[in-house]
Each structure stands twice: as structure tokens, then as C-alpha cells.
Amino acid sequence: MDLIKWKPTELFDPLAEFDRIREEFDRIFGMEPMITGLFDRVRSPAIDLVENDDAFVVTCDLPGVELKDLEVSIANNVLTIKGEKKDTREVKDAKVYRQESWFGSFQRTLSLPNTVDPDKIEAVMKDGVLKVTLPKKEEVKPKQIAVKVS
């Protein structure tokens, strides 16, 4: 389950437009969600969750996030990625012409099935992309069963 709704950050994103139109409809017809996530924000990092035979792989775009500002944890099969994105430009009294990015704290949580081995999780940060590999427990990995002809 996603606690935090993701909104695309790219400009002129047709998918975002559809989202916006749907939200507008929801607003007009009074179908606004009564419940929103506690850590909902306008924008939060985009993630991919892929399942393959051996593991679940979470990939998260975190451009400009320093390793020291990032925290990845797992408790009761809930993976939490949280941190803070800081403005790294060292300028004072700047005249801002365009500001498309966001800065601040973010958090995303993902519920994972209990087939994940919490002791073998690996997280790697490279070029602003976080990749968390969550291997499945040995006993749940699919096994090839040879079918014999009798």
C-alpha cells in the first residue's frame, strides 16, 4: 500500500494532466478523498517496484539527495525510504527565473509480502538513484520441477 501519492515532476506530462482532470472532476462532484496520507506532499520521489524470481527491487529517483540525508529501514515488512532534499546551490540574493524542483523532507513506505528476507536487503545509491534489492526467502523461490515421463 502506498501511503504517499506520487505526482510526476516532469513538465508537460500528459499523465499528470489526466490526473489533474480527474482531480478536478472529483472536486466538482464532491468526490474528494476524505482521507489523505499523513506525509502527503505536493511531490514525492518516483519509485518503481519490480518483482522477479529472486527478489523485489525498489528503484527510487532521488536527485540531489546526499547519502547522509537518506534513511532506508524495514520493520514488519514495511520498507520506509525517507530523507531530506536540500538546495545545494550556494548563492545568496539570487534572482530566480525558474523553479521547477522541490526541496524538503520526503517519505515513502511500501508494504512487502512476508517472503522478504530482512537480513539480506541491499541498498545502493548511484547518480541520484536509490536501488534497494530485497531478496526473497529461499523457501519461497520458485523451483523447477522436472517432469518425468513414466
Partner: peptide, 20 residues
């Protein structure tokens, strides 16, 4: 995603390109 600002005779661009 881009941020553009000007300060002290310089134009500073900040472009987010995760994975590059």
C-alpha cells in the same frame, strides 16, 4: 526538472537528471 537563477554576474542552472 530545472531551476534557473542569476547571482553575481553568473547564471546558475540546476537540472535534475537522476540515473545519469
Amino acid at each position: 526538472v530545472a531551476d534557473i537563477c542569476e547571482a553575481g554576474g553568473k547564471v546558475i542552472l540546476r537540472l535534475e537528471m537522476p540515473g545519469v
